[in-house]
Design a binder for these strands. Structure first.
Lengths: 102, 102
DNA sequence: TGCTTATATGCACATATTTGCATATAAGCA
DNA sequence: TGCTTATATGCAAATATGTGCATATAAGCA
């Protein structure tokens, strides 16, 4: 793998690597939602959610469609949920190691 | 999923989301290596590689063992390679969409 | 012990990321 | 058109991240 390829992969992973964006993906995994619905999930400004969604869209993980005044967001790459699951495995393994005092 | 859980997952993914760290994981997937071997992979200072490895170790993705003067690094969570593969899927899907002019 | 190789760390600096507030843009509706 | 709801964006400030250089620490060996 060369640096360019690694950079492209890193850019996708960076788009996911934020607590709020992970919460957004989690919510979208249970169905399409508009910005105001997603804003209700966390205690941050609506503008912040808007920008997080922009990042997910730029990365190609989420798509949008307009429905009247609302913009509906859709998880177009559910595969990224698996990437999040991988991180859960790491957490579990780390915990196991701690439990064994390693 | 609550914010704490999302934060823990994000911290793991952040540890991977950097081109150099992805190159390091890729190299380690083909066998354990010491710092100086890994430093040869990219044109950055040895201290930079050392710090990237520290992040991977803190996240619990890589472990180390000493062998004489050298410190050998080992990919303890190969599952993270799958997370990187997920990002490749996203890139492929994005490319497909572009090819269809969507 | 003194020298060499291997790795880590303090420091300073540059760059990137996140955030809220205010405000802009866009759609729907009276 | 004027009002309301929905979403995006400019700006400024705070925080985080990545980097090289110099140097510290640790192991092996003559």
């Amino acid at each position: 793998m060369n640096y360019e390829q690694a950079k492209a992969r890193a850019d996708i992973l960076k788009a996911v690597a934020h607590p709020i964006r992970i919460l957004l993906l989690d919510a979208l995994s249970r169905g399409d939602k508009c910005v105001s619905e997603l804003t209700g999930l966390v205690d941050v400004d609506q503008s912040s959610i808007s920008r997080h969604l922009t990042q997910l869209k730029k990365a190609g993980i989420v798509t949008e469609r307009r429905e009247g005044a609302k913009i509906i967001h859709h998880l177009s790459c559910p595969c990224m949920l698996q990437a999040v699951d991988c991180s859960v495995d790491v957490l579990k393994n780390s915990k196991k190691r701690l439990d064994r005092n390693l």
